[in-house]
Simulated scan of single mutants.
Amino acid sequence: MGGTTTHGAPYYFVPGQSKWPAVGAIALALFGFGLASWFNGASYGPWLFAGFVAVLIYMMVGWFGDVARESEGGLYSQRVDGSFRWSMGWFIFSEVMFFAAFFGALFYARSISMPWLGDLDHKSILWPDFTAIWPNAGPAGTIEAFQTMGPWPIPTINTALLLTSGVTLTIAHHALKENRRGSAQFWLLATVLLGFIFLGFQAYEYIHAYRDLNLKMTSGIFGSTFFMLTGFHGFHVTVGAIMLAVVLFRMTRGHFTAENHFAFEAAAWYWHFVDVVWLGLYIVVYWL
């Protein structure tokens, strides 16, 4: 994606037969069987999951490498560019729905089911000592005591890191559009580093939660929603940082022009989406 579009490009490029969809199907099969067997205590489960990771990396390097070579070879017309843009847009929309489901689960547990369980009709039947206060640990004695994760200092530091990374990425984009490649690479590298620093702080936050706060996945609805939302967001930060690192590597190889650089734009769209999701997490999970 994002190579030079030439006037000699075909009306709409149709690639030849490819092995990569089949390789991807093998990776997904290893993912399903590996994760299921791992969760059920099978000794071969981690090995199957490791096979999934290896096959997935092989597929992504090979498939995206083919696409990059086709793009740099001038095979993509404006119609193909439009298809890439629509595809990336729908992909990000699917990710929006993904996080909307998790935010919806948190809203339902916090604002609907908890007050419902705490009213007089249900309180006397289910849990006489239940108190509809968030975060809730359920009936006394069923969940180990834990402390919640507040916004200071790590979540606030991470918010500053992601907001700063959005600025550095925008500067890199403008530099690329002005054909200042050295400046674009510098600011893109800064963005990637900020992303990995964010992940380092989040790893430390999880260690602190388990070791010092006794906050775990088993800590009731608060623990499960906390780790589900922040964990999947961290996974998306990882994916976004890898995407930007690949774009940076391609820039050092001379790929992209000031006019045609959709791979950069697609990664930037994804990164800004990750930034926006974090702002929602920061307010809803850590402050409210």
Rank of each mutant, 00 (worst) to 15 (best):
T4I: 07
T4F: 03
P10H: 03
Y11T: 11
F13N: 02
Q17V: 13
S18E: 14
K19Q: 11
W20N: 06
P21I: 01
G32W: 15
F33P: 02
A36Y: 15
W38M: 14
F39S: 12
G41M: 08
A42F: 15
S43L: 14
W47F: 14
W47G: 11
F52H: 14
F52V: 04
V55T: 12
V55E: 05
I57D: 02
V61D: 03
W63M: 08
W63E: 02
F64C: 00
D66A: 10
A68Q: 08
A68H: 09
E70Y: 07
G73N: 07
G74E: 10
G74H: 10
Q78T: 08
G82L: 07
S83R: 06
R85A: 11
G89N: 12
W90I: 15
F91S: 08
F99S: 09
A101C: 13
A101N: 09
S113A: 08
M114N: 04
L126Q: 03
L126D: 01
P128L: 00
F130R: 01
F130S: 01
F130W: 01
T131Q: 10
A132G: 05
P135R: 09
A137W: 02
T142C: 00
E144I: 01
M149Q: 13
G150S: 12
G150L: 13
G150D: 11
W152S: 12
W152R: 11
P155Q: 14
P155E: 13
I157P: 03
T164P: 11
G166C: 12
G166W: 04
A172W: 00
H173G: 14
A175W: 09
E178C: 09
S183V: 14
Q185Y: 00
W187I: 04
W187L: 06
A190G: 02
I197C: 07
F198T: 04
G200H: 10
Q202R: 11
Y204P: 00
E205S: 14
Y206S: 07
A209M: 14
K216H: 15
T218L: 11
G220F: 03
T225A: 11
H233G: 09
H236W: 04
I242E: 03
L248S: 03
T252F: 13
R253L: 13
R253V: 07
F256Y: 15
N260I: 00
F262S: 07
A263M: 07
E265K: 13
A266E: 05
A268W: 04
D275M: 07
D275K: 05
I283C: 06
